[in-house]
Amino acid sequence: MDQVRFGIIGIGNMGTSHAKQLLRDIRGARLTAVCDSNPERLRWAKENLPESVRTFSDANAFFVSRAMDAVLIATPHYDHPTLAVQAFESDYHVLIEKPAGVYTKAVRDMNLAAAKSGRKFGIMYNQRTNPLYAKLRDLVLSGELGEIRRTNWIITNWYRSQSYYDSGGWRATWAGEGGGVLLNQDPHQLDLWQWTTGMMPARVRAFCHFGKYRNIEVEDDVTAYVEYENGATGLFVTTIGEAPGTNRFELSGDNGKIVAEDGKLTFWRLRVPEPKFNAEYTGGFGQPECWKCDIPVGEGEGPQHRGILQNFTDAVLRDEPLLAPGEEGILGLTLSNAMHLSAWTSDWVGLPLNEDLFYAKLQEKIKSSTYRKSTGPAGGKLLDVSGTH
């Protein structure tokens, strides 16, 4: 194989963007098929995509066609695992938009199907291509920071107005979207939180406010506290209702602290690790000497979506390592599921997550949801809402 034929299922905002990039920017890739149940989107595809790109209104016909080698799934959140399983069982490589799904039980089934298929599986975690977070991960995992003691991410610059939510009946509903700021805006940060540190919490206590700032049924303001196996603690604060917002990720370790903010990476590095200083210092008041280091990270935010598409294509063609393996999508989703469950039960939630309890609580929310799904692979239409943020 010298070229990967891509088929996209869901050609709304993000699906359309991916289609355009596949047509012009990705070496070794060719767009050969698209699928969407919305006649307007299919009409757009026929009018704007090359005649060689086949169009489908039915997912089953799309999979049976053999018109592609790899399937890019950019549909509603609930449909990601269902369609991915069908794609794997049809012997396709699969790249999914974030989040991996709405609940980890379905995502676990998707991961099992991927492993059984032996095909390539990726997820659109495009923020992993950002040199800021790549450098942060390198500093942490190489041991420069020492053992982590605290993580603290304030991500409150996801401002969204009421008119944003009023633009679609599925938005910010349990049945239509499966969550609010945690599932729509924050999947990237929840992924980066564990990806850059290499750590998942041992337990979570979260306080979610539902419809605090907007007339919606899901969470729009969250403060979560976590504890790790090594005794470190963490805080994750997010909302769509503050302006101006903040995006500041701070990590404290034995060797100092690192802050990622405003596209810059700053390392306050101790000349002597704090545990060693504490064990040897006898002067009472005092603290380790500290150097402020501006860490070079390169210009811009990296290739983003294009970078993930190129990396996935290269993985299929030449077996290059995936920057964002699809199986890792369950990690960030576990964090958001744990936060929801903690808020719903007003209690600590330990990891591994009680997936059956979360699923049962989610079904209760869906039953009272203001949104009612129509027909489709998982009860919803094949419309791209996953990447609209």
Rank of each mutant, 00 (worst) to 15 (best):
H188Q: 10
A338V: 02
G380D: 03
T196H: 11
R306C: 03
V204A: 03
L333V: 14
A67F: 07
P201D: 09
Q287F: 15
G302A: 13
I308Q: 02
R149V: 00
R306L: 08
E227G: 03
D262E: 15
L42R: 11
P131K: 14
T239N: 05
T197Q: 03
I295V: 15
G283A: 03
E144Y: 07
N152Y: 14
K105A: 12
A172G: 00
V222F: 11
D319E: 13
G168V: 07
P273F: 10
G326E: 03
L322K: 05
E274F: 15
E274Q: 13
G376L: 05
L351D: 04
T223Q: 11
Q304G: 02
L141C: 02
L331D: 03
A202W: 09
K116F: 05
S342H: 10
G332A: 12
G379D: 01
M200I: 10
P76S: 08
L182N: 04
K212A: 13
P39C: 03
T238M: 03
M1L: 08
G302Y: 15
T239D: 03
G263T: 09
L251H: 09
S17W: 10
E229M: 05
L31C: 10
K120E: 07
P275N: 12
S369W: 12
A279K: 13
G234T: 10
R205K: 09
P296D: 04
T388I: 13
T246W: 08
T151K: 04
L31D: 11
Y164A: 13
N184A: 10
F56T: 09
H93L: 08
A70I: 08
T151V: 15
Q310Y: 11
I155C: 03
N152E: 14
A100C: 10
P187I: 12
E261D: 04
A172C: 07
T82G: 01
A114S: 06
E299P: 00
M110C: 10
G169P: 04
L190P: 01
K381L: 05
S342F: 11
R205A: 04
L139G: 05
Y228W: 13
W348Q: 02
T266E: 03
G298N: 10
F285P: 05
T197L: 01
G300L: 10
S252K: 06
M339T: 06
A19V: 09
A114P: 00
N38P: 00
C290M: 15
Y225N: 04
R43S: 09
A260N: 02
K264M: 08
Q21S: 05
N126Q: 09
T388F: 11
